[in-house]
Nucleic acid binder design. Structure first.
Lengths: 159, 159
DNA sequence: GGCGGATTGTTATGTTGTATCATCGCCGGC
DNA sequence: GCCGGCGATGATACAACATAACAATCCGCC
């Protein structure tokens, strides 16, 4: 496999980004015997159009261009499916959705969200993950879902 | 100062909890020369009625019992003030608000949210905080706001 | 007395997310 | 062949969360 950990802040071949994500999604759904239907795939492609979280109604607007019957439930059902399959994440502090760069790999939601350009980078930091687990264990808490969202300035926007 | 790190999952004198929070808020606002007006204090008291995050419209319903003119902006303005002064936190994954147990002390938002009973514990974990900073630094990211929300089962509900 | 800033009142609207029931297409059992 | 079930989608309505914009009020201060 090629290195998927690209720097989202730098110029890169984003078409390839999207293609990789879609191909990966198809493979994962196939493995799991779940259906990546045309609607779901279109929604996934829309979410992947950038490295910025996208709102559900923004997805709806895009989807409606090629799918006139699209309504809020159409979009939310697709988003729910994609989240359940680990293909996208919800960014809670923005009520928006972002393609998962680590689909198929167990990991925690950890994000760096640039306040200026909106670009949101998913990071995978085992030490941070371990610190989360340790904190929960200390409080006798059984972890089901971990959310880490760090807002601020990306290197490009700060520099 | 008495130990304010009580175990929110255990039975405790919650009236004292509220009183402490309100007294602390009054003192902090006084120090800072900002006004903890009756509306703001009422909203703070409502948020502190439990250790579960409370929605803005739930606050509105409560507030309206004693303050007929209350409307959504009334509540959101009070909540915004309380957040700005560090007296409450917003729990992003629930769109709800929780009294801050560490008001006046610089700290990161770190929460353990029980899916069953709703009780949400604020934790202050310097190691976790450091791990967040380290992860951001590694990505050349300037941190402005850190949010950690861990959802799952509290010790009581896990059995 | 009146100016200015902070707070609250008031109305309307924008944004995000769900409930509910109907319909469709497919596939396997009989 | 057909029928029953299931997963997916269509369609309407509504609930929940949040803000815009402007008016009115209060209060300290010159």
């Amino acid at each position: 496999m090629t290195d998927r950990h690209i720097d989202v802040h730098k110029a890169h071949d984003h078409e390839a980004c999207i293609d990789t994500a879609l191909a990966r999604a198809r493979a994962l759904c196939d493995d799991r015997d779940v259906q990546l239907t045309p609607i779901r795939e279109k929604v996934l492609a829309i979410v992947w159009k950038s490295h910025k979280p996208v709102g559900a109604y923004q997805v709806l607007d895009e989807l409606a261009r090629t799918h006139k019957a699209a309504r809020p439930p159409t979009v939310y059902r697709a988003l729910d499916f994609l989240i359940a399959e680990g293909l996208i994440h919800k960014i809670e502090s923005l009520n928006a959705y972002l393609g998962c760069g680590e689909a198929g790999v167990a990991h925690t939601s950890q994000f760096l969200i640039c306040r200026v350009c909106g670009t949101t980078e998913e990071i995978v930091d085992p030490k941070l993950d371990h610190a989360l687990d340790a904190a929960a264990r200390r409080a006798r808490f059984t972890v089901e879902r971990k959310m880490v969202e760090i807002a601020g300035l990306c290197g490009r926007c700060a520099g």
